[in-house]
């Protein structure tokens, strides 16, 4: 099972990018599954199920931050995708506080940023950008080439190791290099670890316990199948 985790601020075009990616992966005979993690509203799961006939789910994180929710449910979600005979799990998550990042070692981390969002955005989104594998820059048709290249420079200044892919997600332009990147991605294996250190706090994830799956955590947790519950003494 390949794992793709796609993060990015609201309305940057995460869903549009994934839509093109799913279409192209399906055309190559791959079987994607899709999980959307959002705070209080999402309908991408229904859209994708209708458009592509693939297994989809959504989780409302509610009181939890979406990145914490992702840590809790991702282990279950991989099993769900596997039992649905899929070979790629795509997770779209709305990162919220910009202090965590949802990427997992062994998975492909995509951050979607819009070219129209201002030159300081790369400095503001923290590990959501710096710990990603690929920064996908959308809405490139809205700005001049010079401005696009300066935006690229600003990303490189913050995250020199992150590959930058400029796309026009409206017309699906620039998606092919992403498909090639997914092709080259290895399957996830064994116990999964969160890539970054969550900020200091008092919950088991915040204090640095990076194991994926609610079974490894205490306090207020949740599984894919139910609402939050208390686990511990």
């Amino acid at each position: 099972m390949k794992l793709i985790i796609c993060a990015g601020p609201a309305t940057t075009g995460k869903t549009a990018v994934l839509r093109h990616l799913i279409r192209k992966l399906q055309a190559r005979g791959q079987k994607p599954a899709f999980l959307k993690i959002d705070v209080q509203y999402a309908e991408e799961d229904e859209q994708f199920a209708r458009e592509f006939g693939i297994p989809t789910r959504k989780v409302y994180s509610g009181e939890l931050c979406p990145d914490h929710c992702n840590v809790m449910v991702l282990g279950d979600a991989l099993q769900w995708a596997s039992s649905a005979n899929c070979d790629v799990l795509m997770v779209e998550t709305a990162g919220l506080c910009l202090r965590c990042s949802p990427y997992v070692d062994g998975g492909l981390g995509l951050v979607v940023l819009e070219a129209t969002s201002g030159m300081n955005l790369p400095l503001k989104v923290g590990p959501m950008l710096s710990l990603a594998d690929v920064a996908v820059v959308t809405k490139i048709d809205r700005i001049s080439q010079a401005e696009r290249e300066v935006f690229r420079a600003r990303i490189q200044d913050v995250a020199p190791g992150v590959r930058i892919r400029e796309v026009n997600a409206l017309h699906g332009i620039g998606i092919d290099p992403l498909v090639a990147r997914v092709d080259a991605q290895a399957d996830v294996n064994g116990p999964l670890l969160l890539r970054g250190n969550p900020p200091v706090g008092t919950c088991t994830i915040c204090v640095g316990k990076k194991e994926i799956g609610w079974q490894s955590h205490f306090g207020v947790v949740r599984a894919l199948e139910n609402q939050t519950f208390y686990r511990g003494e």
Partner: peptide, 11 residues
């Protein structure tokens, strides 16, 4: 490329 976009968004 010099496009017809003549508004800059960058501050």
């Amino acid at each position: 490329l010099i496009t017809q976009n003549t508004t800059f968004l960058s501050d």
